[in-house]
């Protein structure tokens, strides 16, 4: 019974380890946010151990996202490399003015390019029954903001490494973590799944395939927390002989579909999935770019899935009905192939 499980790293531990390492290596890195001191170590334990190891560089703040995000921007202008934790991504709305009108603009608005190396990390997403103001995926509000890089690693990525790359970028980065991914063990090739990077960039697109022979039936493009639905679904679909190529970009904005084009042209059937609410969403931009480049080779209109444009209920049943789920993805795949 219960043979010891392999001690693989979880998404949360990967981030925590990267933070500890980075702060050890670089004295310019400061960590700011609410309730981040030990022993509590942050609402999702990503900052666990940080304040014990670096008491002078971990700053626990009052409940004022605008205040401490602005503070971090100032620190960055003066040569430090602050990392901000927004306890729940929903609270980004409070910091939006600081991010859009100050942090991102300072990069180019003073006649010469300035380094503004701030990383704002935050958990997004539902699935935990946290209700309307602690479960949203609000990243779409920030996509397309000039000078702001928006990154959202899936658990097929190494989130710790991507966080390192975000800090190394030297520009404002919004780093989106899906809260349901935190306890997940990072994915690796094995069984029916093959996982490899599709691009060689600081924020790469990972390609997950559930077949080794033949061609993909459907190309799925999704990001962040969607990987936790897609990995088990891909394994299940392998048994049904449905060949899936799943591209998981980590870089949401700025974005190019160029690396996806050969795959999209090859299978001619594309499904875009995201957890944010439908309408003016990430998938709209991806679909528009894909159409422009592949419309002649598509065998079906590009299919899109997002959550219903409603307020997220707290009850599990209500939440499941509103958010995109594995069953929605499966039926969309079969619809595309019908």
């Amino acid at each position: 019974m219960n043979a010891p499980l392999p001690a693989s790293t979880t998404y949360a531990k990967s981030l925590n380890a990267a933070l500890l390492e980075m702060m050890r290596e670089d004295e310019r890195i400061y960590f700011l946010g609410e309730d981040i001191l030990d022993p509590y170590g942050g609402a999702f334990k990503i900052s666990k151990g940080l304040s014990s190891a670096f008491p002078d560089r971990v700053i626990t703040t009052p409940i004022s996202e605008a205040g401490f995000t602005g503070l971090a921007t100032g620190m960055a202008l003066r040569g430090l490399r602050p990392i901000v934790e927004i306890m729940f991504g929903d609270f980004l709305a409070i910091a939006a003015d600081q991010i859009i009108n100050h942090m991102a603009k300072f990069v180019t608005m003073y006649g010469r390019d300035l380094e503004v190396p701030v990383v704002v990390r935050t958990p997004m997403g539902g699935g935990r029954g946290y209700g309307a103001t602690h479960s949203q995926s609000l990243e779409k509000i920030f996509l397309g903001t000039p000078n702001l890089t928006v990154v959202a690693p899936s658990h097929a990525h190494d989130p710790g490494q991507l966080l390192r790359n975000a800090v190394a970028l030297g520009r404002p980065v919004l780093f989106i973590e899906h809260k349901m991914l935190y306890p997940e063990t990072l994915l690796a090739s094995g069984g029916a799944l093959m996982i490899e990077p599709l691009t060689d960039e600081p924020f790469p697109t990972m390609l997950m395939k559930n077949f080794s022979r033949g061609a993909a039936d459907v190309l799925i493009v999704a990001y962040g927390g969607m990987s936790r639905l897609l990995a088990p679904l891909a394994r299940q679909m392998a048994e049904e002989e449905i060949n899936l190529a799943i591209a998981l970009p980590a870089l949401l904005s700025p974005m190019t579909v160029a690396p996806l084009l050969p795959l999209a042209a090859q299978c001619g059937r594309v499904l875009l999935v995201e957890e944010g609410t439908t309408g003016f969403d990430w998938g709209a931009e991806v679909a528009a770019q894909l159409y422009a480049a592949t419309y002649k080779t598509l065998k079906a209109p590009i299919a899109r899935l997002a959550s219903r444009a409603e307020i997220i209920p707290t009850s599990t049943a209500g939440e499941n009905a509103m958010l995109v789920g594995a069953a929605d993805i499966e039926s969309k795949i079969l619809e595309l192939l019908a």
Binding site: E240, E241, I242, L334, A338
Partner: peptide, 10 residues
């Protein structure tokens, strides 16, 4: 039958 078999049959 697998789902793929079903699709191809149709």
């Amino acid at each position: 039958w697998t789902k793929k078999a079903f699709i191809v049959a149709r």
